[in-house]
Simulated assay, not measured.
Amino acid sequence: METVEFPLTPLPPGSGEALAERLAALLAARADAVVVVCEVSALVEPTAADLDHLARLRLAARRAGREFVLRDAGPALRSLLTLTGLAEVLEDGRRPGRPRG
Rank of each mutant, 00 (worst) to 15 (best):
M1C: 00
E2Y: 12
E2V: 12
T3R: 03
V4W: 04
E5I: 14
P7E: 05
P7F: 00
P7T: 02
L8H: 00
L8S: 00
L8D: 00
P10C: 10
P10T: 09
P10E: 07
P10D: 05
P10S: 10
L11C: 04
G14M: 08
G14Q: 09
G14A: 11
G14L: 08
S15Q: 00
G16L: 04
E17L: 08
E17D: 13
E17G: 02
A18G: 05
A18T: 10
A18K: 10
A20C: 06
R22I: 01
R22V: 03
L23I: 02
A25V: 10
A25S: 14
L27H: 09
A28H: 09
A29V: 04
R30E: 15
A31G: 12
A31W: 05
D32P: 07
D32Q: 14
D32N: 13
V34K: 13
V34Y: 03
V37K: 02
C38I: 05
C38G: 04
E39K: 02
E39I: 00
V40N: 08
V40S: 07
V40L: 08
S41G: 04
S41D: 14
A42K: 11
L43K: 01
L43D: 05
L43N: 00
V44P: 07
V44I: 14
V44R: 15
P46L: 09
P46H: 09
T47I: 03
T47D: 10
A48F: 13
A49G: 12
A49Q: 06
A49W: 11
A49T: 01
D50Y: 04
D50I: 02
L51S: 06
D52N: 13
D52Y: 07
L54R: 01
L54D: 06
R56G: 03
R56H: 10
R56I: 05
R56C: 06
L57I: 01
R58Q: 13
R58E: 13
A61S: 15
A61C: 07
A61M: 06
R62C: 06
R62T: 14
R62I: 05
R63T: 11
R63S: 12
R63Q: 15
A64Y: 09
A64S: 15
E67W: 11
E67F: 10
L70P: 05
R71N: 03
A73W: 09
G74P: 07
P75W: 12
A76N: 12
A76W: 08
A76H: 11
R78P: 00
S79G: 08
S79P: 00
S79M: 12
L81M: 10
T82L: 13
T82Y: 10
T82M: 12
L83A: 14
L83H: 11
L83C: 04
L83F: 13
G85K: 04
L86R: 14
L86G: 02
A87F: 12
A87D: 15
A87T: 08
A87M: 04
E88L: 14
E88M: 11
L90D: 08
L90A: 00
E91C: 11
E91V: 15
D92T: 05
G93N: 05
G93H: 07
R94K: 08
R95Q: 14
G97Y: 07
G97L: 09
R100P: 02
R100L: 14
G101W: 09
